[in-house]
Design a protein around this nucleic acid. Sequence first.
RNA 1: GGAGCUGUGGUGUAGAGGCCUAACAUGCCUGCCUGUCACGCAGGAGAUCGCGAGUUCGAAUCUCGUCAGCUCCGCCA
Length: 593
Amino acid sequence: MQGLKRTHLATELTTADVGEKVILMGWVNTRRDHGGLIFVDLRDRSGLVQLVFSPAVGGEAFVKAEKIRSEYVLAAVGEVRRRSDETINPKLKTGEIEVYVNELRVLNKAKTPPFYIEEDIDVDENIRLKYRYLDLRRPDMQRNLILRHKVTMAARDFLDSRGFLEIETPMLTKSTPEGARDYLVPSRVNPGKFYALPQSPQIFKQILMVAGMEKYFQVVRCFRDEDLRADRQPEFTQIDLEMSFVEVEDILGLMEEMIAFTFRKAAGITVETPFPRFTYREAMDRYGSDKPDLRFGMELKDFTGIAAGSDFKVFAAVAVSGGQVKGINAKGCAHFSRKEIDDLTQFVAIYGAKGLAYIVVTEDGLKSPILKFFKDEEIKVMLDKFEAEPGDLLFFVADQPSVVAAALGALRIELAKKKNLIDHDVYKFAWVVEFPLVEYDEEERRWVAIHHPFTSPVEQDIEFMEGDPGKVRARAYDMVLNGVELGGGSIRIHRRDIQEKMFSLLGLSPEEANEKFGFMLEAFEYGTPPHGGIAFGLDRMIMLMAKKDTIRDVIPFPKTQSATDLMTQAPSEVTQRQLRELHIKLDVAKAKK
RNA sequence: GGAGCUGUGGUGUAGAGGCCUAACAUGCCUGCCUGUCACGCAGGAGAUCGCGAGUUCGAAUCUCGUCAGCUCCGCCA
């Protein structure tokens, strides 16, 4: 920079600076060459300001300006001048002024970028990810990262003010059963042994409670080797916390405060508290989902009773064999074409639904292939329950409860999108509480923890742990925002006998439990306070605040769906020598080219 | 592991058996231009149509395979 020192950021300049001599540094956003006069929009992190090159003001600078191109890095020395009234640009924050440059230094040249550095680009994500450093120059992406910074700062401020300590936990830790697949790291000094990257700091934060830290938090990276989605990356960030001597109510209340504070401070979004609460059962019954989107209605209605006694064999058979028949009223969708209904039938098939029955409600009566199977009074009950009006379209799915919930829950959202029922400017929070403690995994043929193995059962349900585990409710809770699971946690088991009961329910023998979690069980014998906590998906939180459809847009260097980094080309092969040091022999069928 | 969508100059798209020696916009290069801000005007360069087989007299276009990206199901305590 040859001794030059930046005096202002681009958008710091206002009419108050007119006459000031300033030094700006930044990138060439655009250059407009009028032959005898050259305009350059200079971009830095703050935004744009117009530079003017005129032979009358800076002859040498003007000659240099003829040669500059997009994304060149400049240092410009010049004078702030007010623009004449007719040349004011109301679209720019700095549109009332411009900087007449009398000295220009090209700090660096730049190749022509593969895409425009501007607000709304429509470029293949391949290219954006390969040239992520250019993608991140776009104001949109810079805003996302700035927002992310503000959110973590706000959360830290809040938790600090409430007496939480930010404490780090290991990244190289122990692989444990249950939960997601671990990312493994081979140990050089311990041949044949592996560390695991943490899926979450769960065990450590509980141990910190045993250690008497009382209130812990961390903004922490977590790793799960599972398939990716728009809102799932192999490494992601949690705002993780744990507290001693608390009940469910304490945590829910405090977290409502934290979220309200953070949303207001970081994004200017007002969040109303307290949040509505649903039990897991209620959420599944009414919305077919444990993360209900409350921005619109269209709740599910149950017709299992009517179906069981009807002449419609498809429904009746499901109803009497433990299944459910439920429906949804697609308000004002009576005009849907045969094709649209077929498409929706295919849509619910993804979730395992074998069919999608429907009734069209019109001014002239009902139209439906299934009408003939129902008595008039049965139909009346259905219409009443749906509060059906002419113009409505009623859909039904009959299947086992999990399929009905998944299919209709997804259909509800699909219809809302199709009918544009979702207000994208509202933030509808909710708590979902009393999740089941465990569910039966048909594939593994055993009970698995829904939350995690350290989740405390509801006191009065403990008696069912042996006889009827599916009935046991957990002291667990999820925070849901606009149909997205934002965070979840629980009150933990702090007694060794209950923890052992839990392990045994999950099919872990005392020996296995001891091998995998012995240190934790032992720790629990040294005076463990009752404790509980929660963790929030920071990436998802930012995604929702920034109104993005994928967390990739709020992560500086995300991975593709096949878990690769297109910029660094990770993962990559390593040398034989590296493998030898790690005592690893590869068993890869054929190295792909 | 499975289903679907996409892949054509640098970028975004059009072309859907022969009209293609591949079109349009933008970007890029050259020249002109002293008030533009998506500057304008004139000219120019730039693509073996993701890759590989096949069908056909003929393939960007049809078929199969494959690769990559995306969305979803399974999976993700």
